[in-house]
Computed example of a mutant assay.
Amino acid sequence: MPHRLCRALCDSLNVAGASMSLLTHTEARQVLCASGADALRVEELQFESGQGPCMQASEYGSPVVCLDPGEYLSQWPVFGSRLREELPHVALLLALPLTPANTRQPIGAIDLVRHTPWCHGEDPLPAASAAARAVAGILLRRSLQHVGGAQPLPWEPAEMIDAHWGRAQRAAGRLAARRDIDITDALALLRARAFATGRPLPQVCTDLLDELEG
Rank of each mutant, 00 (worst) to 15 (best):
A57C: 04
V135H: 03
R114S: 05
P97V: 11
S49G: 02
W118R: 11
E85S: 14
R142Y: 13
T99H: 08
A109N: 13
T24H: 03
T26E: 04
E71N: 07
C66Q: 06
A128Y: 07
A34T: 03
L140S: 14
E44V: 14
L139H: 11
S35I: 04
V78K: 08
Q51S: 02
A39I: 09
H25T: 05
Q46E: 12
G80F: 01
V78H: 05
R82S: 09
N102T: 12
Q56P: 08
P124I: 00
A57Y: 01
P88A: 04
L144Q: 15
D68S: 13
P100M: 03
F47K: 15
G137T: 10
I107V: 14
L92R: 11
A131F: 12
L93Y: 12
S129A: 04
Q56T: 02
S62E: 06
L125F: 08
D38H: 11
Q75H: 12
G108E: 10
C33G: 01
T24V: 07
E86T: 06
Q105P: 04
T103A: 15
D38Q: 11
H115T: 13
L140M: 14
V65C: 06
L96A: 10
G50Y: 00
A131Y: 11
R29W: 00
E122M: 13
S129Y: 04
C119M: 06
E85G: 10
L83R: 02
E43Y: 09
A34K: 03
L140V: 13
G36Y: 02
G70K: 07
R141H: 14
R133I: 02
P106H: 13
M55S: 02
Q46T: 05
R142V: 12
I110Y: 12
S129G: 05
A134I: 06
T26N: 03
E48Y: 02
C54M: 07
D38K: 09
R84K: 11
C54Q: 08
R29Y: 00
P69N: 01
Q75M: 08
E71G: 07
T24K: 04
L125V: 08
L93N: 12
A127T: 02
L144M: 14
V31D: 00
M55Y: 01
R104G: 15
E86D: 06
L87H: 09
H115F: 11
A28V: 03
G36N: 12
A28K: 02
P126K: 02
T26S: 05
L98N: 10
